[in-house]
Simulated scan of single mutants.
Amino acid sequence: MTLLYRDEPYDRTAEAVVVESDPGGIRLDRTIFYPSGGGQPGDTGALRWDGGEIRIMDTRKGADLVQVGPDVIHVPAEGAALPPPGTKVTLELDWERRHRHMRMHTTLHLLCAVVPGAVTGGQVGADKSRLDFDVPTGSLDKEEIEEKVNSLIEGDHPVVERVITDEELAATPDLVRTMSVKPPTGSGMVRLLNIGPSDMPIDLQPCGGTHVARTGEIGGVQIVKIENKGRQNRRIVLALRD
């Protein structure tokens, strides 16, 4: 399966051919739908074909999906008529939801640039998102963090992907900020998200999610709350201002 969202995250529609189809999920030869992973929810939308259409309620990685594999399952609405294998379909994303996920996911990277400490967990949402940090000492200032994140957003910094080898990642372990999720290795190459200049990035770490092209596209955000989730664990919850 060709994962179109990796290189074209702004594509809202695409053409594909059904490979397998059953009530548990639909497999296509290519897709723009992002499968749930790395804290980002799976995409929703619709498949349309000559004589029919179906709602896609979720997108997930297949049960036999290895970390570098391309198996993606499009979960159909319960009881809906399914397109048989070989059917040519048009994929249509719920774009507003996806775009909010892109804005949120990019914001969480900026949060990583502002808050010290390893990331112990996180979740992207269309309305609210969060990151949990291992903060050994001191307290976190809600207003200060919000001001710094919004300043980075207003800087309208470029957001681009880079690729390094498994060996390069192993040689630079500081690139990995997350304690709960390990970056996918084994294919020989690892995708990095780079925010800001390549020679002096604001944030640089492995990530396979979808993001906006520039930080200015995020718009303003607010830090909703900071919670204590253990002796050293702090949860930061944020929301888009619109």
Results as ranks from 00 to 15, higher is better:
residue 221 V to Q: 03
residue 160 V to H: 10
residue 149 V to C: 05
residue 86 G to I: 06
residue 158 P to W: 02
residue 90 T to P: 07
residue 32 I to N: 00
residue 16 A to R: 01
residue 214 R to L: 00
residue 181 V to M: 11
residue 51 G to W: 07
residue 76 P to Y: 01
residue 203 D to E: 14
residue 128 K to M: 13
residue 166 D to V: 08
residue 230 G to F: 03
residue 233 N to D: 15
residue 84 P to A: 05
residue 115 V to D: 05
residue 16 A to I: 12
residue 105 H to G: 03
residue 104 M to N: 03
residue 189 M to H: 15
residue 46 A to K: 14
residue 115 V to Q: 08
residue 20 E to F: 14
residue 77 A to W: 09
residue 24 G to M: 06
residue 130 R to S: 11
residue 23 P to T: 06
residue 88 K to L: 14
residue 115 V to H: 00
residue 127 D to G: 14
residue 3 L to E: 05
residue 7 D to G: 13
residue 161 E to G: 13
residue 235 R to F: 04
residue 111 L to M: 12
residue 147 E to V: 14
residue 37 G to F: 04
residue 91 L to P: 01
residue 5 Y to E: 01
residue 59 T to K: 02
residue 17 V to M: 12
residue 119 V to L: 13
residue 75 V to M: 05
residue 234 R to C: 09
residue 133 F to K: 06
residue 165 T to I: 15
residue 112 C to P: 01
residue 227 E to H: 12
residue 52 G to H: 09
residue 44 T to L: 02
residue 167 E to F: 12
residue 202 I to E: 00
residue 90 T to F: 05
residue 67 Q to W: 15
residue 186 G to L: 04
residue 161 E to I: 06
residue 77 A to M: 14
residue 133 F to D: 03
residue 179 M to Q: 12
residue 91 L to C: 15
residue 117 G to V: 04
residue 214 R to E: 01
residue 30 R to L: 07
residue 137 T to M: 15
residue 194 N to G: 11
residue 236 I to E: 04
residue 17 V to K: 10
residue 84 P to G: 06
residue 81 A to V: 14
residue 179 M to H: 10
residue 216 G to L: 05
residue 42 G to K: 04
residue 185 T to W: 03
residue 95 W to A: 06
residue 32 I to L: 09
residue 77 A to H: 13
residue 152 L to R: 00
residue 116 P to L: 01
residue 228 N to F: 12
residue 217 E to D: 12
residue 90 T to S: 14
residue 35 P to M: 03
residue 232 Q to Y: 13
residue 21 S to M: 09
residue 194 N to Y: 08
residue 136 P to F: 15
residue 51 G to N: 12
residue 106 T to A: 01
residue 143 E to V: 13
residue 209 G to C: 07
residue 221 V to F: 11
residue 133 F to E: 03
residue 140 L to M: 06
residue 149 V to N: 02
residue 1 M to A: 13
residue 214 R to Q: 09
residue 112 C to K: 03
residue 89 V to R: 00
residue 21 S to G: 08
residue 149 V to D: 00
residue 175 L to S: 03
residue 39 G to F: 08
residue 199 D to W: 07
residue 125 G to K: 12
residue 94 D to E: 14
residue 191 R to S: 00
residue 29 D to P: 02
residue 173 P to Q: 10
residue 18 V to G: 00
residue 101 H to I: 06
residue 185 T to Y: 09
residue 235 R to Q: 10
residue 102 M to K: 11
residue 204 L to K: 01
residue 92 E to K: 13
residue 103 R to V: 07
residue 74 H to Q: 12
residue 117 G to H: 06
residue 16 A to D: 07
residue 160 V to G: 04
residue 78 E to L: 12
residue 182 K to Q: 15
residue 226 I to K: 06
residue 96 E to Y: 11
residue 82 L to T: 08
residue 64 D to A: 12
residue 139 S to E: 15
residue 202 I to V: 14
residue 130 R to N: 11
residue 106 T to F: 02
residue 69 G to F: 02
residue 114 V to F: 05
residue 206 P to W: 00
